[in-house]
Amino acid sequence: MNQQDFEQRNTPVWTRLDEMIQAIGKRHGKDQRDAKQVEFPHLYRQVCHHLAIARERQYTTHLIDRLNQLMLRSHQYLYSARAGNFSRVMQFIGGGFPALIRREQRLFWLAMALFVLPALIMGLSVYFWPEMIYTLMDSSQVSQFDQMYSPSSPYIGRERGSDDDVLMFGFYIYNNIGIGFRTFAGGMLYGLGSIFFLFFNGLHIGAVAGYLTQRGYIDTFWPFVIGHGAFELTAIVFAGMAGLKLGFSMLAPGRKTRLTALIDAARVSIRIVYGVIGMLVIAAFLEAFWSSIKSFSPEIKYIVGAVLWSMVLLYFIFAGRRHAD
């Protein structure tokens, strides 16, 4: 078959594929289901085949270039990202996430230790020697905390407006999830960044808790933090754990090359980060709209807090026990 016949015979295929690409392209990837239909991959493979033939038979460069371009463009669409489907997300929440955390248990305990131990030690030392807090904060910050949680402060006992709630919601989203992300990203520095964030956050939280407890602001401080703490503190530990996974993959790549070990580890860690995002959003919601409510008695806050904590614990211990992946 000479080139002209070849072109004549196959041009309909090429124009059809070209049209399909343009049609998909116009929708800016919002709906790429078309690309996954039977016809598109079929046409695409046909063009790949034509390209191979054209090369083999040394048809003109012009034709080869044209086919090559067509192939390249459709390649981009055929292998484009699939939108995460709903049931996969649900499965992840329903069991994949806790199963993943349990599979990486050792990292979890490590991250936990890096966070909880400094918090405990710092908390206790500040509780017994309150001046220890100044090793971490300066006096203006300390007095700010004093003011916020002192039962005599004008803020306490007064209900906050909805606009304050929204402001704080925005702030928690902005600040806390950002911290979570940085804790994860820090793992890229051979885990040092994650360790630093875990350790430092632990120290800080421990110090504040120790200090406020020692000052006797128990009824203003603890009821406030107990509820969202269940999600926020665990999420920070998870973020650190995801970061540590990155770090370890580079320190001890095993039989893989350092780079592939890193890429593989990142694939797993990012799934942990998905969960962290979800938990921090829940935490921000609770912190802004539940923890701030003043009209409930501390007992109710403690009970709800206990319920939330046990929910989180039960979820991570039992959910998705026999999940295959």
């Binding site: 069991g95 959910a319 998705g320």
Partner: peptide, 11 residues
Amino acid sequence: RWSGWLRGMRP
């Protein structure tokens, strides 16, 4: 469905 997922059986 949820309790199924939570117990780890795939839908």
